[in-house]
């Protein structure tokens, strides 16, 4: 997580220790799996039928964000990105 090692006289921050970052990530992955499993047990009361389908919200959230990033990076950025001084002439 940190490219620059902290100065020696400084107390290292929580995330300077890679083990803490790992712990956080594994907790997060655990939550994600748990949330997915809940869908097996609990059936949501919904308005649209597809909302109740297994993992609908999980898959939608994941796919939406992947599409968002891919489109923004590979389609929008080449179209609109310019140098910082584009308007300064």
């Amino acid at each position: 997580m940190s490219k620059h090692p902290p100065k020696v006289d400084e107390k290292p921050g929580m995330f300077d220790n890679p083990r803490n970052v790992k712990r956080l990530l594994y907790t997060f992955y655990g939550c994600v799996v748990l949330l997915l499993l809940v869908d097996l047990v609990y059936h949501k009361h919904t308005i649209f039928a597809w909302e109740g389908a297994f993992a609908f919200y999980s898959v939608y959230g994941f796919v939406a964000c992947v599409i968002l990033v891919i489109v923004a990076k590979y389609i929008l950025r080449p179209l609109v990105m310019r140098k910082e001084d584009h308007y300064d002439d």
Binding site: Y29, C31, V32, L35, D39, Y42, Y60, C65, V69, K73
Partner: peptide, 25 residues
């Protein structure tokens, strides 16, 4: 509550995985 939490956690999962994979812009 469940629907919204799932939506958000899996969005966060997408962010995390894309970032770790170096795909995040």
């Amino acid at each position: 509550v469940l629907a919204q939490t799932q939506l958000l956690f899996f969005s966060a999962l997408a962010f995390t995985l894309l970032l770790l994979a170096g795909i995040y812009p």
